[in-house]
Design a protein around this nucleic acid. Structure first.
Length: 922
RNA sequence: GGGGGAGUGGCGGAAUUGGCAGACGCGCAUGACUUAGGAUCAUGUGGAGAAAUCCGUGUGGGUUCGAGUCCCACCUUCCCCA
């Protein structure tokens, strides 16, 4: 009897062999087509999560498939290693970020290796190494040289007590999450990247095979709107610009609103209103931008005492300030047309400002005094001087004749012009942190700024003190702070570091040559591998990361960084035209694995009832609600929640029964040895994200130990729609265990007859070829679950045939050979082991993908489905090559069909050949 | 509030362009083997019905010879943005 399947033995054996023989090294080979498969790199948080397995192993399976299909595949892995958690560990646990990060990486690298993925570890990158972040800084300087990086003002979360800037995720309800100290919004000088310069190009997705929702999200994020810029003047004559998408409503502007931070506020505010304005500005500083933009928040504002002149009709209208106008959006000033804008309408109603109708819809005439909400639809312009009677449809921009006409007129009059505005703002990259790539800029004594020279690029100092002040240690590290400028004069370094999205914006290029020291990437490697063919990762990166990396690539292209690459490509006869417009051609998002649902314990509890609350002195866990004695006096039901010794029990009423378990109560839990405690009572767990606090985390290491990596991989690919994810079901893995054992059995434990049964052998071979097609299709389409299903189906056909001794050695060998190669992408270890047992040469992962033979896969008999009026009435076995005429005749002559036709003559007979179906219409 | 998904057996999920709904698996049921079964094997498994048959893809309408799939309205739910 052959040895049974021993996963741990096999997995360590082949991991070693693959490593030794360099099976997964990817080297340039211009004679082969290339395939660059990339999956998002993890943050080294310390432990590999089941979610990482879910994201990476299917991507690996597809990369392996492409390799067997004859592509030269690059599938690298690395770590996105800068970021806040490392710094927080440093402060709270006194571990240096380097140390914390590196020990996490070492641990995770081992866990990643256990996956059996075809990562080329010689190409590993770690973004927090100087070898990597030198180039991140280098990119910053390039951007600066090309005027894509600049210094500007931005609102930041400022903690007055700590004298430091906080990240958005550190602020909760306007307070510092950790200290509870108030946080205010403050304008500060920060570094920006000019991503808005590329706004229009980023809206073009022509070259991209990306999920539609991602493209839509990016579109909304960029938020292009067409309209006009119009110059207003204050009464005193100071000009200020506003942007509007509705210039056709200019005559309906009854007041102006400035952002509280607008520079003109001080000038227009009259002494009488100065105090109120100042108070309001202080109040605004306490609200975050997200709160301010919330639409269901009540609009507030104050009058400045100042007036503006409407350039279209010379009307004098009041200037207000309100926090719903953002200084960073548009020009920080708006004209308010309450009749035709909902936010302005609410504001006007609240403060008793005039509402004037200038677009009159058909039907009911509007009256500003009685309207209950703004009217934004189509209508005819009224009260609009020369434009009265012009039709405004509900189109945007130039599509709308009224808007178009007004824009032309504004241009003529010299008071405005056509303009496009974006919701997208420039990318703020400054972070007041230690654990990031330093911004390589130097502040000179004369007040000017210059980039650090290549040999003076800052390296993060290690000998820093992490004080719980919240300030970056760089700000008080003298040796880092003090440097010299290009003329050798004393100067000061920038102490801010870069947003970690910087690191991940170009990592796909560093994988090409992680140790190359003349350029961010080796042009020879880039010429062959670029661009990324397939990118997989979480949908949560739809906007930020994916927009930034697209911007980066376009900027790199325009800065000429791919010129050398293009030259090499031409030498190899590859046309570089358009190859560097986008970083990743095809994108697919995986879903999320959620925690399993768990039923709470059913309990019966008794004690004394006080004010509807039960103080229990006895609690017993019972298998079912019905198992409680019918005369039981107390509470019976499922525990839905438990906080300390308070239970929330579902007793079938509309509200949950509160049960407080007394300290000395008797607790009976069957299955638990010794004395039971209240915290051993299990409460109901809903399907939700895994988290340590909920106790529903699935640990991949334990699963691998119990079942083997192959089984875990296959189960993750089988049990979910990969692009959707879903709740983890601990029971379902049995199906994979059985399948793998059966496969093992089919290869190793078979005594074969001298002669097989020809028909059965034909069937088995047919099934194998059908599987080739199904598995190939499923991998092409990222539909991994159907691929595994096809392999199981093959097992279902082959295994009984083998057990009944109906398959001879030749066919057995042929079918096993196909089956193992089809399994190789999904379960690389066992496929390799059994491949060896079949006596085939190392390695299965370097074998060609099995070739599909349509003739062998074809059935000779098929089921003809006969419908009458669209309902299935009969199924008839017919030869597969039946003609349309024959099929129709057979269908019409069926007794059952005749019965349902009720003696009527058919009106129409429809034949669908590829579905083997006839529909008779009577 | 805006945008985007998703609703299919007890459960996870299948179903090219509209063409046999429920592949594959879990679970469950019955039986076999067995000292035992959380192993294995066999059979069954959407609902109702003895059966013929009827009903079934969130709800209501529509288009079509034919709708899980397309169109309209609605409900529920998840995600993103605000």
């Amino acid at each position: 009897m052959a040895k049974t399947y021993q996963h741990s033995e096999i997995e360590s054996k082949w991991s070693r062999r693959w490593e030794e023989e360099g099976v997964y090294r990817s080297k340039i080979d211009w004679s082969k087509p290339k395939h660059y498969a990339l999956t998002m790199l993890p943050y080294p948080s310390g432990d590999l999560h089941i979610g990482h397995w879910f994201a990476m192993t299917p991507s690996d399976a597809r990369a392996r498939y492409m390799r067997m299909k004859g592509y030269n595949v690059l599938f690298p892995m690395g770590f996105d290693a800068f970021g806040l958690p490392a710094e927080q560990a440093a402060i709270s646990r006194n571990i240096h970020p380097w140390k914390w990060t590196y020990s996490n990486i070492e641990r995770m690298r081992e866990q990643l290796r256990s996956m059996g993925a075809m990562f080329d570890w010689e190409r590993e990158i770690i973004t927090c190494t100087p070898e990597y972040y030198y180039w991140t800084m280098w990119f910053f300087k390039k951007f600066y040289e090309h005027d894509l990086a600049y210094r500007g003002m931005a609102l930041v979360n400022w903690s007055p007590t700590l004298q430091t800037v906080l990240a958005n995720e550190q602020v909760k309800d306007g307070k510092d999450e950790r200290t509870g100290q108030p946080v205010i919004q403050k304008m500060m000088e920060q570094w920006f990247f000019r991503i808005t310069k590329y706004a229009d190009e980023l809206l073009n997705f022509d070259k991209l095979d990306w999920p539609e929702p991602v493209k839509i999200m990016q579109q909304n994020w960029i938020g292009r709107s067409e309209g006009a810029k119009v110059t207003f003047h204050t009464e005193a004559g100071d000009p200020f610009e506003i942007f509007t998408t509705r210039p056709d409503t200019l005559w309906g502007a009854t007041f102006m609103v400035l952002a509280p931070e607008h520079p003109l506020v001080d000038k227009v505010t009259t002494p009488e209103y100065a105090e109120a304005v100042e108070a309001y500005r202080e109040q605004t500083a306490r609200a975050t931008e997200i709160e301010r933009m919330s639409e269901d928040r009540e609009k507030t504002g104050v009058f400045t005492g100042g007036y503006a002149i409407n350039p279209v009709n010379q009307e004098r209208i009041p200037i207000w300030i309100a926090d719903y106008v953002m200084i960073s959006y548009g020009t920080g000033a708006i004209m308010a047309v309450p009749a035709h804008d909902q936010r302005d309408f609410e504001f006007a109603r609240k403060y008793g400002l005039e509402i004037r109708v200038v677009i009159q819809p058909e039907g009911e005439p509007l009256d500003g005094k009685t309207m209950t909400s703004a009217v934004t639809g189509a209508g005819v312009m009224v009260n609009s001087g020369p434009f009265d009677g012009t039709v405004s449809n509900d189109q945007k921009g130039r599509q709308n004749p009224a808007i178009s006409a007004v824009i032309d007129w504004l241009t003529e009059q010299g008071i405005g012009e056509e303009s496009v505005n974006y919701r997208l703002r420039d990318w703020l990259i400054s972070r007041q942190r230690y654990w990031g790539a330093p911004i390589p800029m130097i502040y000179r004594a004369d007040g000017t700024i210059e980039p650090a020279s290549d040999d003076n690029m800052p390296i993060l100092p290690e000998d820093v003190d992490f004080l719980p002040t919240g300030r970056s240690p760089l700000t008080y590290h003298e040796p880092f702070l003090n440097t010299v400028d290009s003329e050798g004069k004393p100067a000061r370094r920038e102490t801010d570091t870069m947003d970690t999205f910087m690191c991940s914006s170009w990592y796909q290029y560093r994988y090409l040559s992680p140790h190359y020291d003349k350029f961010p990437f080796d042009p020879e490697e880039a010429a062959y591998w670029l661009p990324v063919d397939v990118y997989t990762g979480g949908a949560e990166h739809a906007t930020m990361h994916l927009l930034y990396t697209r911007f980066f690539t376009k900027a790199m292209r325009d800065m000429g960084l791919f010129e050398e690459v293009a030259k090499i490509q031409r030498e190899h006869g590859r046309d570089p035209e358009g190859l560097f417009d986008e970083p990743m051609l095809l994108l697919r998002n995986q879903g999320q694995v959620l925690g399993a649902e768990r039923k709470g314990d059913i309990i019966m509890a008794k004690g004394r009832m006080v004010d509807g609350k039960l103080y229990a002195d006895y609690v017993e866990v019972i298998p079912n609600q019905e198992d409680a004695p019918s005369n039981f006096e107390g509470v019976v039901g499922e525990i839905m929640d438990r906080v300390e010794n308070i239970l929330h029990v579902d007793i079938g009423a509309s509200e949950l029964q509160i049960v407080e378990v007394e300290n000395d109560a008797v607790i009976v839990i069957p299955n638990i040895e010794g004395e039971a405690r209240v915290d051993q009572l299990k409460h109901h767990l809903e399907i939700q994200r895994m988290s340590k606090s909920k106790g529903n985390v699935v640990n991949p290491d334990e699963l691998v130990q119990a079942y083997g990596a192959d089984t875990v991989r296959a189960y993750l690919m089988f049990a979910f729609d990969w692009q959707k994810g879903g709740p983890w079901d601990p029971q379902g893995i049995q199906g994979i265990v059985r399948w793998i054992n059966d496969v093992w059995d089919m290869v190793t434990n078979t005594t074969l007859p001298a002669q097989g049964t020809p028909e059965v052998e034909r069937d088995v071979l047919r099934k194998a070829h059908q599987a080739i097609k199904q598995v190939s299709d499923s991998l092409e389409r990222f539909s991994f679950n159907t691929g595994v299903a096809a392999l199981m189906s093959l097992r279902n056909e082959v295994r009984p045939a083998l057990r009944e001794n109906q398959v001879g050695e030749k066919t057995w060998r042929e079918v096993m050979n196909i089956m193992l190669r089809l399994m190789a992408p999904f379960t690389p270890f066992i496929a390799e082991e059994l491949w060896e047992k079949l006596g085939e040469p190392f390695s299965i992962h370097q074998q060609p993908w099995p070739e599909y033979n349509a003739e062998l896969a074809a059935e000779n008999e098929v089921t003809l489905v006969v419908q009458v009026n669209g309902k299935v009435r009969d199924r008839i076995q017919v030869p597969a090559n039946i003609s349309e005429e024959e099929a129709k005749n057979i269908a019409l002559s069926s007794d059952t069909v005749q019965q349902f036709m009720n003696g009527n003559t058919p009106k129409k007979v429809i034949y669908i050949p590829h579905r083997n179906m006839v529909n008779i219409v009577v």
